[in-house]
Amino acid sequence: MANHKLILDDAIGEDFSLIAIHCSEEAYKMAYLLNKFIHLRLERRRRDLDFSEEGLEITFPLFDFEDTNQYTTYHLVANKCKTVAAHTVASGGLFGDETAEEVVTKYLLPEFKKVDFFLKISSEYETTPIRKLLMQLNEINQVISAFMVEVSEVKSRENLIFD
């Protein structure tokens, strides 16, 4: 009997750049800071990035801006989502079970748990001025640090599909 082996290539190419941002601000404030200091025009999408995992609804705020002059698209997404998980605990008593709530933190890219935001940059050009952008990001007072992430190191690249 013949064995058939299917080899699936990675469907997600590395045609984008990814910048990790450490910042303790809320997502809307981070988008505002990028709009103000880097002169982007990020707007929040009507629908956030939603996942369902282990019975929990996980939502990540997503902002985007398409620069038609430079043929570049910017996506700002939060890496952390705090959600409340309810657990039913049997009390063994006469009056029924008790419900315990627990705050659970989920990550868009679990391998980067210390990162607060990701800025995904997709461009038609071969090179985009990433170094200049990193310098501008690091000059913002509220940003603790910003650095380039090698897309090949990201294990959960499928979470970065925003279309």
Results as ranks from 00 to 15, higher is better:
92 G>H: 10
108 L>M: 01
44 R>P: 06
54 E>V: 00
39 H>P: 02
131 R>L: 10
117 F>H: 04
17 S>N: 14
88 T>R: 15
65 F>I: 02
51 F>D: 01
93 G>N: 11
101 E>L: 13
71 Y>V: 05
11 A>S: 10
68 T>N: 08
137 L>F: 08
71 Y>P: 00
51 F>H: 08
65 F>S: 00
78 A>V: 06
156 S>Q: 12
159 N>R: 15
162 F>Y: 12
63 F>T: 03
54 E>P: 00
107 Y>V: 01
46 R>A: 13
151 V>W: 02
155 K>V: 03
132 K>W: 00
112 F>K: 06
101 E>Y: 15
55 G>Q: 06
85 A>K: 15
92 G>D: 03
133 L>D: 02
18 L>M: 05
132 K>L: 06
106 K>T: 03
13 G>L: 15
2 A>I: 03
81 C>M: 04
30 M>D: 00
13 G>S: 13
80 K>Y: 00
10 D>Q: 15
95 F>L: 14
51 F>E: 01
61 P>Q: 06
148 M>L: 15
21 I>M: 10
154 V>C: 07
88 T>Y: 10
77 V>G: 08
124 E>M: 13
157 R>V: 04
110 P>I: 01
53 E>L: 12
93 G>F: 11
117 F>Q: 04
152 S>L: 07
160 L>Q: 02
81 C>S: 15
39 H>W: 03
14 E>L: 11
55 G>T: 01
120 K>T: 01
